[in-house]
Nucleic acid binder design. Structure first.
Lengths: 154, 154
DNA sequence: ATATATTGTGGGTAGTTGTGGGTAAATATC
DNA sequence: GATATTTACCCACAACTACCCACAATATAT
């Protein structure tokens, strides 16, 4: 079975143990291309969740950032908020990565987590937080959303 | 008789077994082009049913999503909603795919199912749910059909 | 009409995966 | 330098999944 490498879809329920470890779904680990050497980069998401990138995808982002001018406020903000918290971790023999307390606090993780494939990255959520955000997003700009849907969904 | 590849028509009755597997009608499997490697992607439909795409059709959607920047909140929401329930599965030697509990719940699948060819994708329904929806849709606006008439010749 | 192949449905089993906890090395604290 | 705390690595086990086989029902061929 060959799917796109470094591409993640689907939603999974897992638990954070009392050492701050979470399992990366087996499907996601299998989707990692070999040149990642079983490494992910975890960082602060733009929503209150943790973003998990394959190591080489993250390297690309870093390289792109180098080419961005710091004159732009949004660039500076993105770098400050997102890159700042990035740390590389490989998963252990049971397929778990170690989260940092910083990120656990930021995303309000307790025991139950939702791990969501977001195509080129993975999100780790507190299920309750995500529900909140989903509710808020119902009021989101519908026109822009529908435009996207029309362009992309078949 | 050879029909168009990756094109599905007709309606079939099947059962979901207690492991959450459903048979994909033989005709549909034969309609899959070779580059799919016997893989489908199942995901949440816009109606309360499961959508089943040939893998390569879904890959197109994925690639489109990869070009959306996560700096935009609306993009993030859209990606999440689109991909969250998607999972790739190849069918087993008996021609069945494994459904996820998420999707079974969402589409209210019990034992009996209707599998419907929808041209470029397949829908899996609880027959009762479909009846409900059909009733509602009888009241559909004739104007809506007139609009469609300008786009499609049947 | 009979034989043969295909298709749909059920279940068993071995291997994988998720979760908890243990131990020793590494780091920090007093 | 001795002790406490954290971190990295290892093992155990229950639960689940992928894969295999069996068989009945249907369709196809002779």
């Amino acid at each position: 079975m060959t799917t796109n490498l470094n591409t993640f879809t689907g939603e999974y329920s897992y638990t954070v143990d009392n050492k701050g470890r979470v399992n990366i779904p087996a499907k996601f680990r299998k989707a990692l291309s070999a040149d990642n050497e079983e490494m992910f980069v975890i960082t602060k998401g733009m929503d209150p969740c943790i973003w998990v990138y394959p190591a080489i995808v993250w390297k690309n982002i870093e390289n792109n950032l180098k080419n961005l001018s710091s004159l732009s406020a949004i660039n500076r903000t993105f770098i400050r908020n997102t890159v700042r918290y990035a740390s590389a971790t490989s998963y252990d023999k049971q397929g778990r990565i170690q989260l940092t307390t910083n990120l656990i606090d930021y995303s309000h993780l307790k025991k139950k987590t939702l791990i969501i494939g977001m195509v080129n990255k993975i999100e780790i959520w507190n299920p309750d937080k995500l529900k909140e955000i989903d509710k808020k997003n119902i009021k989101i700009d519908n026109n822009a959303y529908d435009e996207l849907a029309e362009k992309i969904i078949i």
